[in-house]
């Protein structure tokens, strides 16, 4: 009886702990998990007749969420770098078929450059937001200065009135 090998995505998924270094970094959301999962997802989609292609919105959302939770762009890029390095090594050991190794490398390359693009555009977005926020801060400062000016006048008037009353 011939054993049918598990799909490539499943065999790469088996390498999760090794690639994400879960022994060191814990099993709960280890850094770079979103990159690794995007690679596995894309590998799984290679077999689909419908194909995959296009922007991986899940990766996009996962990276956006990490940024929203306070991770910096540098940290995200660093995690991606580490995942790539460990994945290349793990696949060289774990996959015998050069065709499969090629598929993993191409997919990883797609995901990594996509991640770099997402991070760069997130930084562009942040720069735009920072610019907007700065102007809004300046507007708020203007309002506060106006209020301070008004307060100073009112304070002087009230102090005078209260003084005159002899309180």
């Amino acid at each position: 009886m011939t054993r049918t090998p598990a799909p490539l995505a499943d065999r790469v998924d088996v390498l999760r702990d090794e690639v994400l270094d879960t022994a060191e970094r814990g099993d709960r959301d280890p850094p770079g998990a979103e990159i690794f999962e995007a690679i596995v997802r894309q590998l799984a989609a290679l077999g689909d007749s419908a194909g995959h292609g296009g922007l991986d919105l899940t990766l996009h959302d996962a990276l956006a969420r990490r940024l929203a939770w306070g991770d910096t762009e540098e940290v995200l890029l660093g995690d991606a770098d580490r995942v790539f390095e460990r994945l290349v090594k793990a696949c060289a050991r774990g996959l015998r078929d050069p065709e499969e190794q090629a598929a993993v490398l191409e997919t990883a390359s797609d995901v990594l450059t996509a991640a770099a693009r997402i991070v760069a555009l997130a930084a562009v977005g942040r720069a735009g937001r920072d610019r907007s926020a700065r102007l809004r801060e300046e507007m708020a400062q203007r309002r506060l200065r106006d209020a301070l000016h008004e307060q100073a006048q009112t304070l002087a008037r009230l102090e005078q009135e209260v003084k005159e009353s002899g309180l």
Binding site: L77, T113, R117, A120
Partner: peptide
């Protein structure tokens, strides 16, 4: 790609 991204950051 990461370097370009880093430059943008």
């Amino acid at each position: 790609a990461a370097s370009i991204s880093g430059l943008v950051v």
